[in-house]
Simulated assay, not measured.
Amino acid sequence: MSAEPILEVKGLKTYFDINGGVLSKKVGEVKAVDGISFSMQEGEILGIVGESGCGKSTTGKSILRLIEPTAGEVRFNGEDIMQLSSENVRKLRRDMQIIFQDPYASLNPRHTVGKIIGEPLLVHGIGSKTERKQKVKELLETVGLRSEHAKRYPHQFSGGQRQRIGIARALAVNPKLIICDEPVSALDVSVQSQILNLMEKLKKEFKLTYLFIAHDLSVVKHISDRVGVMYLGKMVELANKDLLYDEPKHPYTKALMSAVPVPDPDIKQERVILQGDVPSPSNPPSGCAFHTRCPSCMDVCKTDVPIWQEVAPNHQVACHLYNETTKEENVI
């Protein structure tokens, strides 16, 4: 791994306006991503997990500027993506690609598989027509399909095969970073393992870096090097996967980990049941966003936003339980 991170995200915010009334004026905003920061080294797989609606997918799309962020900084190979023109962002997408969640919705039903996979090559002006056709055939075989499949249409394939087509399209321009937006959540369990194994194989073969977004904790543990946990638009914990799964620090992470099924029936696991529903991102709670459901909630949690700090080597968390002054104030 190189010393310089391939991707640096600082204070990323993505808000969506809520319009209402007769004149459709702005009456509020949804804070889908609310000031998250992390970095990634080349060749790393960083998993991002959290409940539905916590802002995982919006984070991935904001990094690529498929959704325009409200504020923050995203640096790819040292270059600030937020300052680039739309034309320069398009050129940069040769190095940054995405695999979408739904293999049924992300492929154009009117185009052949050959055209779908070859389109990125055409957009970026790579190769002649003959070279592009050859590249498409090679990509299909790389992802476990046959070269003659290039003449077929998406509806002629299963969900797993369609996701392989989506992966081939992402690989077409030899990117350095691939954002995987829940790439296996729409697939059967047996197919999920095939796609995950394929992605691991391709990572080594093409020296890829993955930002892997998912809500299945066992899938994330299987494929990731580090894991970040999101709650209501904020990153609450980030650590090496073994550290995070064996010694979770944040109360929300502990609750998530307690829900992961253990295959051994003799192991009795204590389940942490959270009370209440996830608050609305259009009206988040004051202080720590998790305080309304936290079993360890203190008075300071209701008023002060916890700072993002390192509590152990390569283990960061945003929680008042690990703030030294808070600890002293709450000693009885």
Rank of each mutant, 00 (worst) to 15 (best):
P103G: 12
E79W: 03
Q97M: 13
I99Q: 00
L84E: 11
M82Y: 02
D95V: 02
K91D: 06
R110H: 15
S86M: 00
R93A: 01
G78R: 02
E87L: 03
S86R: 15
A105H: 06
I99T: 00
P103I: 01
S106A: 14
M96Q: 11
I98F: 03
V74N: 00
Q83W: 06
Y104L: 15
S86Q: 09
D80P: 03
P109L: 09
H111Y: 13
Q83V: 04
N77K: 14
D102N: 15
L92N: 13
D95M: 02
D95W: 00
Q101L: 05
D80F: 09
Q83G: 03
R94P: 01
V74D: 00
A105P: 05
I81D: 01
S86H: 07
L92P: 00
N108A: 06
E87V: 09
L84K: 13
D95T: 05
M82H: 09
H111Q: 15
T112L: 09
M82P: 01
L107C: 12
Q101C: 07
V89N: 07
G78C: 06
R75E: 13
N77P: 00
E79S: 10
T112D: 10
F100A: 02
D102K: 08
R110E: 14
S106G: 12
M96H: 09
L107M: 08
P109R: 08
R94M: 13
F100W: 07
N77L: 12
P109W: 14
K91V: 08
P109T: 09
S86V: 15
D95S: 15
I98R: 00
Q97I: 07
P109H: 13
I81G: 04
Q83D: 13
S86P: 05
D102M: 10
R94G: 13
I99G: 04
Q97G: 06
L92G: 02
L84W: 05
N77R: 10
E87I: 09
Q83N: 08
S106I: 11
I81T: 05
M82E: 03
S85I: 12
S85H: 06
M96L: 14
M96K: 02
T112C: 11
V74S: 01
L107D: 02
D80S: 10
L84T: 07
D80C: 07
L92W: 04
L84M: 14
N108D: 14
I98T: 03
P109G: 12
V89F: 07
M96Y: 11
V74I: 12
L107A: 11
H111P: 04
V74Y: 00
I98C: 04
L92S: 03
H111M: 15
I81P: 00
R90P: 01
D102P: 03
Y104W: 13
D80V: 07
H111G: 07
P109C: 13
M96F: 05
S86D: 10
E79T: 12
R93L: 08
D80W: 06
I98Q: 01
V89T: 12
L84P: 08
M82T: 11
Y104K: 09
N77A: 10
F76D: 00
E79I: 14
E87N: 04
P103Y: 11
P103F: 06
N88L: 03
